[in-house]
């Protein structure tokens, strides 16, 4: 009877140990993995850095060395809008009309003054 109880206890202990061993193993490695994860993360920045640096540098160099698709670049914006005739005539007409009106006014004033002098002189 003792044997059976002892054997049962031993079995139970081994079962519990066997079951807890992975749990410990899980817990144990979890810091370890976290360390190994951090160490992988340590390397991971390195790999990510390496690829990110490599492509970043490569394209930066490529355009600099790549020939220009437009070798001769013009300056400024192209003048692709000749002033429409209607606007030209409108502005021109305005200037001409204004000057004609001024000449007419000066002439009228001169005539008025001459007539008034004659009237007062007579």
């Amino acid at each position: 009877m003792r044997r059976t109880i002892l054997s049962a206890m031993a079995l139970a202990c081994t079962a519990v140990l066997a079951a807890t061993a992975p749990a410990f193993a899980d817990e144990g490695p979890s810091p370890a993995p976290s360390v190994t994860e951090t160490t992988p993360q340590g390397p991971s920045p390195a790999p990510t850095d390496a690829p990110s640096k490599a492509p970043a540098k490569a394209p930066a160099k490529a355009p600099a060395s790549a020939p220009s698709e437009v070798p001769v670049v013009p300056s400024g914006a192209p003048d692709t809008g000749a002033e429409p005739e209607s606007e030209q005539s409108a502005t021109g007409g305005g200037v001409i009309g204004g000057s004609a009106l001024a000449v007419f006014a000066v002439g009228g004033a001169a005539v008025y003054l001459v007539r008034r002098r004659r009237a007062t002189g007579a």
Binding site: A8, L11, A12, A15, P22, A23
Partner: peptide
Amino acid sequence: MTLPSRRAFATAAMASLLVSCGG
């Protein structure tokens, strides 16, 4: 005599099952 051994086996089996699932 047989009863305790069965209980022991049963508890051991349950414990191992539970722990393995948790793991």
